[in-house]
Nucleic acid binder design. Structure first.
Lengths: 312, 312
DNA sequence: TATATTTAATCAGAATAATCTATTTGGTAA
DNA sequence: TTACCAAATAGATTATTCTGATTAAATATA
């Protein structure tokens, strides 16, 4: 059994196709076929069921793939160990970011990070929280930025910052005259929210439920971006809530509609999360440093009350 | 990087000598030298400091060896996965047993186990608890039988049985006239114990401390085997405590000196312990089944009060 | 039904890598 | 110095892995 063979197995398991897997692993299809057969001979068991189209894993095959992933992960970590020792920070790194954080946070740290760690080849994907959890566990993502806590026992969380919620109250809204918002003022049926699946939304529902025992689950409207929500609010369709960093992008003509909460303001915890297996820790540390650095300037620290996203 | 190379590295790290390591891995010394050099070239780092005699690991080398052990362990587990699927129970297995359990338990299950699982090549070593913990963690032992709980977070414990303590009270001892012993009767200065390092002793000290707040740590006598202890007791040097299974070996002429505790009798928990990495689980399960089987006949189950060994 | 098309297996030869034997080098100890 | 030991090196041999061409089988298309 060689590590190469295991990588071939993983590639076939992923693409369900020998030819594609061969391309991805930069060998010819016969090479891949032979190596996998050799492994099957050595273990004296079928890994793939070749009668099915597309090709499928046998039941043992699934366990073998799982174990192969372990071995390959551990083996990739060897370079990590060496890099750590050398103080070398570089290599490929996949980072997931949830949609409600992506547009505000990414521009803030990306340039400085790229300058500071030029050897890191950062690939960033916008994914929602559920997708992130899956992809961290299967080793596709090296780390991600999401609202926490998630309560996932295979995932570590390292808080980056606490982002207060700010109300966006259009002119003739019932709360327009208040100076500062209070959590008790909120009514779930009256708040414009992002479409389901965005964890920011989960956080808000939770907030309302927690404070007013609202059980109603019918929302007037749901949109995919905060920009839209603000416009809808301006049309008199209700108020909305924005994470603090998004308020910086609000058109100056409408800044007057922003209403802050009385302290302690409700807030979401935003963390860098990664697998407990702690691969590529040097890069994770570097990311944490970079982001913490830019955030310190952007969010004036206030007394804050954390709202957890509802995660099953 | 290949698994073979990592095995070579582990062998050299263990024997601190290329030539010996080569013998152990069944290749010639140049083969080993070259493969290790190749690995060092690939990682661009020195693993061994060859100027030292005997050869030494560099500081990175130590981390590399640790990671190599992970990889090799995970890779050996692959066969395990397959065996499990096939229901195959066999292969080499190293079992440690503490001295106070070895002579009584081993004869009870060894023969039947060997018959039932003829393909398992069982190697048994008598080791004390501390040695067992070390050797399980470094992967030298696959499992062990010891008094528990140990409170080791890398080690899993699976209780086999609860073995009551029985007092051995010589004729003119102050407790000789009592019908049943009580925990409160015990006085640490009056009990003959095994020499330090035997966890059975730790258990007893604990028992006495717990019940009478004895702080005195001077013992009249310490011996290496229960047989000796019984003889010493017969000489009037005090009483002693025996685990139940040992009482079966007491000469019938002296059986009258055995005094049981009032229920719930103090007892020790004896468990099958193994690394959390759960290698060779089929064999561990097989052992558990075999031992539980023979024990059910030997220890009539009673109401029992568990005494934990003191483990730092 | 015949004909492409797709996909994995097979085979022979080339390229690569691992291992062996024999020898050299570099320290240590006598 | 010489003798001795352990690791490195050189060259030959053997194993292995890979490729390119081809085949076989299954599926899709005309």
């Amino acid at each position: 059994m060689t590590i190469t063979q295991l990588k071939y197995v993983l590639a076939v398991a992923e693409h369900q196709n020998f030819t594609k897997a061969a391309e991805k692993t930069f060998v010819t299809q016969p090479t891949l076929s032979m190596q996998i057969q050799k492994l099957e001979d050595e273990l004296e068991i079928q890994i793939f069921d070749r009668t099915k189209k597309p090709i499928e894993l046998t039941s043992v095959g699934e366990k073998i793939v799982e174990q192969a992933r372990n071995i390959v992960n551990e083996s990739e970590r060897m370079q990590d160990v060496v890099d750590q020792e050398k103080g070398f920070i570089g290599g490929a790194f996949k980072l997931g970011i949830i949609p409600t954080i992506m547009p505000t946070l990414l521009p803030m740290f990306l340039k400085s990070f790229a300058n500071r760690y030029p050897k890191v080849n950062l690939k960033i994907e916008e994914l929602n929280t559920d997708e992130i959890i899956v992809k961290i566990n299967e080793g596709y993502l090296d780390a991600a930025i999401a609202a926490t806590p998630l309560g996932q026992d295979k995932i570590k969380e390292r808080p980056l910052y606490y982002e207060p919620f700010v109300g966006y109250i259009p002119e003739n809204h019932r709360l327009a005259l208040k100076d500062k918002l209070e959590v008790g003022d909120l009514d779930i049926d009256d708040i414009l929210l992002l479409e389901d699946g965005h964890c920011f939304r989960d956080g808000i529902i939770n907030l309302c439920k927690a404070t007013k025992n609202v059980t109603s689950e019918k929302f007037q409207l749901e949109s995919g971006s905060f920009e839209t929500l603000v416009k809808l609010a301006n049309e008199g369709l209700g108020m909305t809530l924005l994470p603090y960093l998004h308020t910086l992008d609000v058109d100056s003509a409408f800044k007057k509609n922003l209403k802050y909460f009385k302290e302690p303001s409700p807030a979401r915890e935003v963390s860098l999360i990664y697998s407990k297996s702690e691969l590529k820790m040097q890069i994770i540390n570097a990311l944490h440093d970079s982001i913490s650095g830019v955030i310190r300037g952007a969010i004036a620290f206030q007394d804050v009350k954390i709202i957890s996203p509802t995660k099953k």
